[in-house]
């Protein structure tokens, strides 16, 4: 199995604050990885550092054997569009939606490659199949939707192009258990094929039995790794 992502001694933070302390992580293609840890222990910062959205960072990040890391103290977000175009799809924490755009326009924004733009209607239809509630809301503004619908829009935007690496930050954050279960089911139903998926999540129960590996984060360091977990028996 080739490595989709190989992180070596990655440190990152914001200004004087150091959040990640020399993190190592390898993700192989076809894997679904659960990244668990408490609030403020660096899950989101790790995902942000992979897309160059953290304040500063240093260390090696190899994406498909291509070095995308390096030392950087300013310019957060400058390389993000290029990284996204090279095949890293992200559904960020807080959804990063465009409040004044309709659901359809929103999904069109996600179709940034030439191919995806050409067949955007087909792809939007596919997203609607994954998240049926969105079909009814096609022309309503995303800023008026509920939290669960926003999460679906945010993940749907991520799914508009084929990526090599899917980063999903707290898909259950702020959602009612029933809705978050629906969102998670949709994520498990996605074919990963030769891509890889990292899901940052606090609720281990939601991940158990569904992901190939669970990686724990504590105080900005990797703590422990479990393979093929099923923590809750009979669930």
């Amino acid at each position: 199995m080739p490595d989709v992502l190989k992180i070596n001694k990655l440190s990152a933070g914001y200004g004087p604050l150091r959040v990640l302390h020399e993190v190592d992580l390898t993700v192989q293609s076809g894997e679904r990885i659960g990244l668990v840890g408490l609030n403020g222990h660096g899950k989101t910062t790790l995902l942000r550092a992979i897309t160059h959205m953290s304040g500063w960072q240093q260390g090696s990040i190899k994406f498909n054997d291509l070095e995308i890391g390096g030392s950087r103290s300013i310019g957060a977000g400058r390389r993000t569009p290029r990284l996204v175009r090279s095949g890293i799809a992200i559904a960020p924490q807080g959804d990063a939606i465009f409040p004044g755009l309709s659901v359809r326009k929103h999904l069109e924004c996600g179709a940034y490659t030439k191919l995806a733009w050409r067949e955007k209607n087909k792809r939007i239809d596919k997203v609607f199949d994954i998240f049926p509630p969105l079909r009814m809301l096609e022309h309503s503004l995303v800023g008026k939707l509920s939290g669960g619908e926003r999460r679906m829009v945010s993940i749907g935007r991520m799914l508009m192009v084929e990526a090599k690496l899917y980063l999903i930050d707290e898909p259950s954050l702020g959602l009612a258990p029933k809705i978050s279960h629906g969102v998670m089911e949709a994520l498990w139903a996605l074919p990963v094929n030769d891509a890889a998926m990292i899901i940052a999540e606090q609720n281990v129960n939601l991940l158990s039995g569904k992901v190939d590996r669970i990686v724990g984060m504590h105080a900005g360091r990797m703590r422990g790794e479990v393979g093929h977990v099923s923590l809750v028996s009979g669930d």
Partner: peptide, 8 residues
Amino acid sequence: EGAAYSGI
């Protein structure tokens, strides 16, 4: 930020 995540 959302725009950057959409490759814009």
